[in-house]
Computed example of a mutant assay.
Amino acid sequence: MADPADTPADLPPCPSAQGGGTGLLPPELRGWMLLLAATGAVEQRLRSVVKERLDVSHDEFLVLCLLAELPREGLRMTQVAELLGRPKTRLTYQVACLQHAGLVTRKTVCGDKRGVEIALTDTARRLLREASAALSETVTEALAHVMGPEQCAALIGLLPEAAAKPGAEPGAEPSVVA
């Protein structure tokens, strides 16, 4: 794991995380702001670990993660761009870097000469398996740093159905990963 001294300085707390919910924002927007703050904290801490463990950029890492959740046949580039919310031209550059590093393969889609499909290589799968403990620990630590019970409750407010999962106690406080 990266030395904490090598990680960027912590960002100031998100105003929505200051508690109370006394501002002008409705709970849904407050929850959204908390989600953005938590995502930013995770991304900030992951950047150095991803570079150290996988030697790829954060955006390239997102491509690898998306492909890691799929069967070996891969995904079309247009689908990857849509799922990650990235411009196709930027994705083309990222995939070229990943291909040059031996982490993805590219092939033309059968029956569609303009379609391109990408998939993880065995090397990428091995590297992701080896790095997964450090990466998940980094995510957990970053979330624990910015998420307390009040913030978790605000986020649960965005998805009330999630709080009503089978086995969940009605009105129970969401658990915090620490």
Rank of each mutant, 00 (worst) to 15 (best):
G115E: 01
P87T: 04
V109E: 15
R125A: 03
R106I: 07
A81C: 03
R125C: 02
R125Q: 09
T121H: 00
R90I: 06
R106P: 08
V104E: 07
L84N: 02
M77N: 10
P87D: 13
R86Y: 12
G102P: 06
H100V: 06
T121C: 05
L103Y: 09
A81K: 00
T123C: 07
Q79L: 11
D122I: 07
C97V: 10
T108N: 11
Y93W: 14
T121K: 02
M77Q: 12
Y93V: 14
P87V: 04
R76G: 09
T105F: 10
Q79N: 06
T123F: 03
K88W: 02
M77I: 08
T123N: 08
V116C: 06
Q99W: 09
V95M: 05
G102K: 02
K113L: 10
V95A: 03
K88H: 11
V109F: 07
K113W: 09
E82N: 12
L103H: 05
A124I: 01
A119H: 01
I118H: 06
L83M: 12
R90Y: 10
R126W: 01
R125D: 03
R106Q: 15
T123D: 10
L84C: 05
Q99F: 09
P87L: 07
A124H: 00
A81H: 01
G111W: 02
Q99K: 15
R126N: 01
R126H: 06
A119M: 02
G111T: 04
L91K: 03
V95S: 06
Y93S: 15
